[in-house]
């Protein structure tokens, strides 16, 4: 079982994602953005970084990379796709997820470990989590302030598409627990068919206790175990 990690020029968490998938017990291969084929991958990760430098809007150029057609087809067929940080931004720009990112509330880049609540467990990336489980995950971004129009927001909530929310030390999605100003403390969402998930925190950087948190393993293990079940059917 193999996970494809897409490498855009400027991706900087590609190798981290590959490493974390291996820690979680699966194979991961790096796929160059100019490739047009995902091979026999059973899942796709769009990693963090600054694709093409992000000198335009984050993710705005990466969505035109040749590999993105293959990613779109893969997602349309129901394949699990995870966008982490810049990968999430690219999924938004590519229209695979609704909404948009703007600068963090206080304009500054923010890098720290934050508590994130898992609100929905019926996605390929949260199936091994408990509903309401709080994960401690690093964030590291300048544009992680999620926003969407009122209709989109209502639909996200109605369809239970908000998967992760920033919370405070008591597990509450309040202003004090919101590190970047995201609407409704949204840290991650999924698409209507629930196979495409994007989140700003970095689960792949929190898969070993030595790094300060192993909570991110729950996200990657969800994928690895889920795929393990489906492939053995």
């Amino acid at each position: 079982m193999t996970v494809a990690v897409v490498v855009f020029p400027g991706s900087n968490s590609d190798v981290d994602a590959q490493h974390a998938v291996r820690v979680a017990g699966a194979n991961a291969t790096l796929v160059w953005h100019k490739d047009t084929d995902l091979g026999d991958a059973q899942a796709v990760i769009l990693p963090g970084g600054f694709a093409h430098g992000d000198y335009l809007r984050t993710g705005a150029i990466a969505r035109f990379s040749p590999i993105m057609n293959a990613v779109r087809d893969f997602a349309d067929r129901g394949g699990p796709v995870l966008g982490i940080c810049n990968g999430f931004q690219i999924l938004l720009e590519a229209g695979l997820l609704p909404g948009a990112m703007v600068r963090n509330r206080d304009i500054k880049f923010v890098s720290r470990l934050v508590p994130v609540r898992v609100d929905q467990v019926d996605t390929p990336f949260t199936s091994a989590c408990r509903q309401g489980q709080v994960l401690h995950l690093p964030i590291a971004h300048g544009e992680g302030n999620y926003t969407a129009d009122a209709d989109t927001m209502a639909a996200l909530e109605a369809n239970r598409q908000v998967i992760f929310r920033y919370v405070d030390a008591d597990g509450q999605p309040c202003e004090a627990g919101n590190p970047n100003g995201s609407a409704r403390n949204i840290a991650g969402i999924c698409n209507a068919t629930r196979n495409v998930v994007g989140l700003m925190p970095h689960p792949e950087r929190a898969c070993e206790a030595a790094l300060g948190s192993a909570d991110g393993l729950a996200v990657l293990s969800s994928l690895v175990h889920g795929l393990g079940v489906s492939s053995s059917r």
């Binding site: 500054k108 880049f109 890098s111 070993e208 790094l211």
Partner: peptide
């Protein structure tokens, strides 16, 4: 240091401010 990405690379063992910097 909260404006510095210190976790990318997944080698940073000690969080900033807790000790000298340590990378595995």
């Amino acid at each position: 240091y909260q404006q510095y990405d210190h976790s990318v690379g997944t080698n940073t063992i000690a969080q900033p401010g807790l000790t000298a910097a340590v990378a595995r």
